[in-house]
């Protein structure tokens, strides 16, 4: 039983990692458009928008990459879980406001308006996957195995 759980956790780990890697590409190549999308959420103060647009896609990429190869995967997963929570809150706020915005999840294409509810639900699934990994990933095929860690 446990073995199946850890196999699923491994599959999820790789899938979730790839999702985040993929999601970062378009944002990395179009920082100005991504900044515009963050602006559209109307949550962050103006002076923080650009620095978020500069750093966030790279944090997504590195977290995704580390999750796939299993390097510092605890940290990578923690970041991904935190990001998913932040994304869900940001989308939720705009659902409540009644604003239908382009989420900027996988593309920064202008006017690529997605249904906010389906974005929210997709994030919930990713979140569930992340939790599964948290509980059942056994560090199979993970670089973390080769790293000596203090067991504190």
């Amino acid at each position: 039983m446990n073995r199946y759980l850890s196999i699923f956790a491994l599959i999820f780990r790789i899938a979730l990692g790839i999702t985040f890697i993929y999601a970062s590409f378009d944002k990395i190549s179009h920082p100005a458009e991504f900044a515009k999308i963050i602006h559209n959420y109307r949550i962050l103060p103006g002076y923080l928008i650009n620095i978020f647009a500069i750093a966030l896609p790279w944090i997504e990429l590195i977290s995704g990459l580390f999750l796939v190869v299993g390097f510092l995967r605890g940290g990578a997963l923690s970041i991904i879980i935190s990001l998913l929570i932040v994304f869900m809150i940001a989308i939720g706020i705009n659902i409540i406001r009644g604003v239908n915005l382009s989420c900027g999840c996988f593309t920064v294409s202008e006017m690529a308006k997605s249904n906010s509810w389906s974005t929210f639900i997709r994030d919930t699934w990713l979140f569930a996957m992340a939790l599964f990994i948290y509980f059942f990933d056994s560090s199979a095929l993970a670089l973390d195995r080769f790293i000596k860690e203090k067991t504190d």
């Binding site: 750093a55 944090i59 990429l61 590195i62 510092l72 605890g74 940290g75 923690s78 059942f136 504190d152």
Partner: peptide, 29 residues
């Protein structure tokens, strides 16, 4: 074998901060 849930939260936080730092440095660069 080591599950992520077995990590001490302090440990997870340290790893997270390391990744965020790398992300910011690369992004800024």
């Amino acid at each position: 074998m080591r599950r992520i849930r077995d990590y001490h939260p302090k440990h997870l936080l340290r790893q997270s901060l390391a990744i965020i730092a790398i992300g910011i440095v690369v992004g800024v660069f």
